[in-house]
Each structure stands twice: as structure tokens, then as C-alpha cells.
Design a protein around this nucleic acid. Structure first.
Lengths: 331, 331
DNA sequence: GTGAAAGCGCTAACAT
DNA sequence: ATGTTAGCGCTTTCAC
């Protein structure tokens, strides 16, 4: 099947290809009757402009690259939805790249991204360090980073301040005399855990103490659950902080099995709230993180960065807020 | 910052652009010393071939479009991971499109896909009907459909046979005298539910009876949970079948609240297994659906479709199997 | 208001 | 083994 081109349309409508181009791009200077003629030819032939050729001629692709570690979690999906919805409104396409360990190094991905001449790139990545982002800076393509507070000439970021989140929350506990607060490690989200750690450290430091209850999951344990079953046999705290729902549920289950009453004996909060927290029994308290908005806002900022004129229409760093939902695992 | 092109490299290396092109594409006919010369020039200038221009010249984009309803569920993410991992191995890029209701009609998406001249499209969609897929057929781009058994000239499909899955499973219950089997509706996955319904209908038909226990969630209820709380006050069955984990958990919670013992009074199986099923108490039995493989296999088939020579190296329809995991909600 | 022609950056015959 | 040249499909001056 022959791909029909702008030439075919031009011939069909007995005009030059320049005129067809003008019609496609909604140029005002075309006379109404020729516009109709061209429009008809387009319909008749079922012509679809070749975005690749347009990209070449215009030196832009109207495409944004999105890089994520893996598309595994529910909230990653939500971020993607946010990004895509806004991208659509502004007629951008999205290409998706993932930094699966073993299968593709970040440098390879950057390579492909540069080659594909996208207009911008949005990065959501726990592991991507500043060096790698700096590499991207060299190609002077606009970048929006989701999750980490970072900014530069053509780098913006959209994030939630987990450090302050947990600082504020834990401080209330500390001040109420519940000073024994523990944080469960999450190997899959090291960057987030680090932020939480910093927040808790500040709480203790404020009172001249040191935060010590960082519960690491030893490598030999297949899951947090396996280890926690051991851990809680000999440990108990006033408040347990986890990052993901599945870890909170692991705490819930082990506690029940060991006869630790939640929230009476021990309280539990899951930073990253999810529908599963509400389905657990007792229902797990958590913070509603605006995952969809993280995506949507990022893309909106990207579109602004891409508009020459709007150079000052956006902030380099955008902090998104969260809402605490008290459920049954906290008093 | 001036984008440096193949011409710049040619000039730098004092060769023609054809030679540079040959080096880039690993042509064998280039003498070693000139290859080195060119390679050096490429390094020095930091040249990256423009994939857009390559696409134009080669009439192919090495890009696959992927269409999903929404990136919300965990398994959608897994499918994406499978797709991407394989896509990477074969050096394909992926563009992601979603059919968010309200924001973008499927026809618009098809429009953009066609314009972007992707080499193939993978579709995972409950709602996309055959008409829409047929529209794509007109543009003779290779298509792989995930989830539904469907095939045509340039359409392949990869799927799990939910009908047979539940038919086999429910038959065992029926034959054991547990004839009261109910299926919970899932508005978000109508196509899957339909398959399950067909399977159960066959079970009853085999015995000259009619399957009636399809539990619809009335529109006025915000969630399955809200309705099920009412439903189970006056209803009880031998076996409850749900599609997603969250619905199974809703059944679990309402049952517990109403004093219905699971699995003693009523058994429960969740077709689409997830880690949350294992975290629930009692743990929910389910089928391990190979979500990652659905993606991976689909992309593998796509690469085969794209290879001219390999016309017969793949099946039009590929059925993937599942593994049943008995846990605590079934006897 | 419309057409002719020069690119956009690259590949692939075809020459040499 | 390397260079020349004609596209790939489109946009955009610049003439008319």
C-alpha cells in the first residue's frame, strides 16, 4: 500500500504542495475555495501528514521522553497518567524509557533519547544520580525531574517534601512522649527512604538525641515480611513508619501473628497511601501523595519551558503537598 | 547550541558524508584507518545521528506504539515492563498512548499513531472494539492485541483464556456438589468479566442449568465494597469469583464484618492474583497471570512480524497459561 | 493568494 | 574503498 504524500494531495487538488502545507497548518492566507479543494483531496485520499518529515523540517518532534526506573508500582502508573493527559492537551507525544537494571544502562537510554531529538525529557528516578542528569544538561534539552528537588538552567523539578512531611508528623509523636519511632527500610525506594531518614534524624537532633531505629532488611531475607516476623519478636516501638503499602501490611500481619496490638501497643503509618491501605484491617493511616498531579504538573511545566516566550511563567522548583488520612493504625 | 550533523563530521574527518554514514551503520567496506579517522571526529564533535532524519530516509522509525486504557493497574505496569524489556533488546523505542475517557477518543489516538509512522502497534484494551482495530488494519501496520483472542492478516494476539480457566475451576466445584457459584462484576474490566461469565455459563449449561449469580454493582454505589456489604446480608454462595484483588479484599472484609466465615461458610477466589492477595488475611487464592510475559511475548511477536523474512516464524494467536495458587480462602 | 525551490539530516544506489 | 547524488515528506522563504 503506497503511503500517500503531500504531493499526491497537491496533484489531486491541482495546487502546489506549498498550498497543501498551508492548509494543513491552518495558515490564514489561503483563499476559502482552494482550501476547500485541498481539504476534499485530503479526505478523498485519506492523507495523513508524516510527523517524521514534519519533525525534520521543523527541527522539533513535539515529543517528550519519559524515563522511569520500572513501571511497576501503582503510583508510577498514576504519574504516567498525569503526564499523558496533559501531554495530550498540548498535543505532545510521549516516548517511554525504563532503566531496568541489567537490561539497559542509563547512559544508553540518554543516548537513544538524544538521538531521537525529543523536545524535552521528564525523569522520575530514584537511582539516577546528579551526574547522569548533568550529562543530559550538556545536550541542552529541557528537563523536568520528578521526585527530587533539583534545578538548573534548563532543569525544573516537581516533588513532595517527604523530609518535612515525616518531620512534622514524628515531632507530634515525640512531643507527646512517644519517642520510640522506627523507620522500615525499602530497598526499592532508597531515595525516598533517605528523605524520611533525614526527617526523623532532625526530630531527634532537635532534642539532642540521635535517631537509631532504622530497620534494615538483611539481604538474606526474601521479603520484609520474613524479616519483620523475626524483628518484632524482640522489638517494639511507639510508631512504625513505612514507605509503601505492602510493607505496612507486612507489619500489620506480623504484629497480629505475634500478638502485638495495633494501634494499642504500637502505631503504624504508611507514607505512601494507597487504596490497599483502606482495605487492610485495621485500616492503615497514610499520606495521600498527589501522584497523578506529580505527572500532570511536570508536563505542564515542560510545556511552559518549551514555549520560548514563557520563560518566566513557571517556577524552577515546585513542591506539591499531601494530605494525611488518619485511619485505624494510629491513635 | 548548534546541532552538529553528519556534514560536520565529514568535514572534520575530511571524508564524504557517505563514508560517515557507512561508519555509523557499521558497513564492512570501510578501510580501518578511515574508520578510525571518522570515529575520532565523531567523538570529538560529540555527534549523535539524528534518528528523525534516519527515519525519514529509511522509511521506518524503529518505534512501536503501545495503547492502553489507562496506566493504573499493577499488571498494566508489568505488561509495559515486559514490552519495554524486549523492545530494548531489539532496539525499538516505545511510544505510549492512553485512551483516557473524555480526554482523548480512540480515533484521535489512531490518528496520531498513523501520523507518527510507527513500525507497529501493540494494543491492550478492554474497551477498544473490533471496529477500531479494523480502522488500524486499513493502514496496514502490524498489530499485536493483548488480552483478546483475535487475528487477521497483520494482526496477532496474545492472551490468557479466562473462559477455560474459570470453566475448569468451577466445574470441579460443581462436581463436588458446591453448585452455588457467584461472579462479582468489575466495571473496569468488562471484557474479562464477560469471558468469566461465558465460562461459568458453560459449567451450568453442561448440567442443563443456567448461571444466574452474576452480582452487578449498581451504579449508585461508590465502590463494590459498599454494595457487597448490603448484598451479603441476604446472600451467600459456595464460591465467590472476583477478577481483581481489590474486589476479593472487599468480599473478605464484608464477610468478616457480617460474620460469614471464609472459607468455611463461603469460599473465595480472585482470578487475577497479586501480591496483595498473599498479604490479605486469610490469604486469597488466585491465578498467577503472566502479565510481564503478556508484554514480553507480544513485543517478541511484533519484532518477528517486522522481519520480512520471518513471515512464518510466529503464531497468529498465542495463548499464555496461568498457575493456580491455592491459599486460605478456598478449601 | 499561490508556486518554485531550498533546505531539514540521513541513506542508498550509482559512479569512480 | 570512497565520493556524488537523488530522494525520504514536509516547511518556509522568496518570487510572482
Amino acid at each position: 500500500m503506497k503511503r500517500i504524500t503531500i504531493y499526491d494531495v497537491a496533484k489531486e487538488a491541482s495546487v502546489s504542495l506549498a498550498t497543501v502545507s498551508r492548509v494543513i497548518n491552518g495558515s490564514e492566507v489561503v483563499r476559502e475555495d482552494t482550501r476547500m479543494k485541498v481539504q476534499e483531496a485530503i479526505e478523498k485520499l485519506g492523507y495523513k501528514p508524516n510527523a517524521i518529515a514534519q519533525g525534520l523540517a521543523l527541527q522539533k518532534t513535539t515529543t517528550i521522553a519519559f524515563v522511569i526506573p520500572e513501571a511497576s508500582f501503582f503510583y508510577t502508573g498514576q504519574i504516567i497518567n498525569g503526564l499523558i493527559d496533559v501531554a495530550k492537551i498540548y498535543n505532545y507525544n510521549m516516548v517511554l524509557h525504563t532503566t531496568t537494571e541489567g537490561i539497559s544502562a542509563t547512559s544508553d537510554i540518554i543516548e537513544t533519547i538524544i538521538k531521537s531529538r525529543v523536545d524535552g525529557v521528564v525523569i522520575f528516578n530514584d537511582k539516577l544520580d546528579k551526574d547522569e542528569i548533568t550529562t543530559l544538561t550538556n545536550y541542552d534539552v529541557p528537563i523536568v525531574v520528578i521526585g527530587n528537588r533539583i534545578s538548573d538552567n534548563n532543569i525544573c523539578s516537581v516533588y513532595v517534601d517527604y523530609e518535612t512531611l515525616i518531620y512534622d508528623y514524628a515531632t507530634r509523636y515525640y512531643d507527646a512522649g512517644k519517642k520510640d519511632i522506627a523507620l522500615i527500610e525499602d530497598r526499592k525506594n532508597p531515595a525516598m527512604i533517605e528523605q524520611l531518614q533525614h526527617g526523623l534524624q532532625r526530630v531527634y537532633k532537635d532534642h539532642g538525641e540521635t535517631f537509631k531505629n532504622f530497620v534494615k532488611i538483611p539481604k538474606e531475607y526474601r521479603s520484609s515480611y520474613e524479616y519483620l516476623k523475626e524483628y518484632f519478636k524482640t522489638n517494639k516501638h511507639d510508631l512504625i513508619v513505612t514507605y509503601r503499602d505492602s510493607q505496612a501490611m507486612a507489619v500489620l500481619n506480623t504484629a497480629k501473628e505475634l500478638g502485638i496490638k495495633i494501634p494499642e501497643d504500637m502505631e503504624l503509618v504508611c507514607v505512601l497511601d494507597s487504596k490497599y491501605n483502606a482495605m487492610a484491617r485495621p485500616q492503615i493511616s497514610g499520606f495521600k501523595i498527589p501522584d497523578y498531579d506529580l505527572g500532570a504538573v511536570s508536563m505542564r511545566i515542560m510545556t511552559k519551558m518549551l514555549q520560548e516566550g514563557e520563560k518566566d511563567g513557571y517556577n524552577r522548583e515546585t513542591e506539591l503537598s499531601y494530605v494525611y488520612t488518619a485511619r485505624e493504625t494510629t491513635k
